[in-house]
């Protein structure tokens, strides 16, 4: 199907829903604006930066991430339950949704295209280390890889390891360096970023 046909289908559906009084086009605009401008991985980056700087916050985050992030008042969280998994010297965590595209919107925004593709969804479970290598992540053989399959009920976010040279930075500087991919688990943050 070409994009123009897809566009016509979307427009036809919208016109019918508006006629039936089920939708106001302004509400659609508001949703698009929210996800384009205010919801995205910059939110998760703030959470990670705070967890690195504030041990008490980190323990609350690890115990119950859904409640711990309430103080940020992020919008757009069609998130039922958020679980944060921590990368350590022993374990590297990786997030996927094998069934469709479940993703922690409030902290990471909408998922990148590759996250929704069948190749990533199926291969990450079968051969996580190979997939990680393709993303440029080389892990020591001794390091365990844990794959977390997101679902409608539970969304996962990775708490990446903080590079040593970032230890003196404040939350704001840290947040600007933390990448989306590191919070999905397909990137390891390094000193030179």
């Amino acid at each position: 199907m070409s994009d123009s046909q897809a566009a016509i289908r979307a427009e036809a559906l919208e016109s019918l829903l508006v006629e039936k009084g089920l939708l106001d086009p302004n509400d659609i605009d508001a949703v698009i604006e929210l996800y384009n401008e205010r919801v995205g991985p910059m939110n998760g980056a703030r959470v990670v930066a705070k967890a690195w700087r504030d041990a008490q916050f980190k323990s609350r985050l690890m115990a119950d991430a859904t409640s711990a992030i309430e103080e940020f008042e992020f919008e757009g969280g069609e998130v039922q339950k958020l679980v944060v998994v921590e990368n350590t010297d022993e374990v590297h965590n990786l997030v996927v949704c094998t069934l469709c595209s479940c993703y922690p919107w409030a902290v990471l925004g909408l998922p990148p295209k590759w996250y929704k593709d069948p190749a990533y969804r199926s291969r990450v479970v079968r051969e996580p280390r190979v997939v990680l290598t393709e993303f440029g992540v080389q892990l020591a053989a001794s390091k365990k890889v844990r794959v977390w399959d997101s679902s409608a009920e539970i969304r996962y976010m990775v708490l990446p390891q903080q590079p040593q040279t970032w230890l003196g930075l404040d939350e704001q500087a840290l947040a600007s360096k933390i990448t989306r991919d590191s919070m999905i688990g397909v990137e390891v943050l390094t000193d030179d970023l």
Partner: peptide, 27 residues
């Protein structure tokens, strides 16, 4: 904001369809 991510809708109709689904669920 998306400097830390990427363009989320490749075509405008994708945004409309996404927006419809979320708006209907909010309503």
């Amino acid at each position: 904001p998306m400097a830390n991510g990427e363009v989320i809708f490749e075509e405008p109709w994708q945004g409309r369809v996404f927006g419809m689904a979320v708006a209907l669920s909010r309503a």
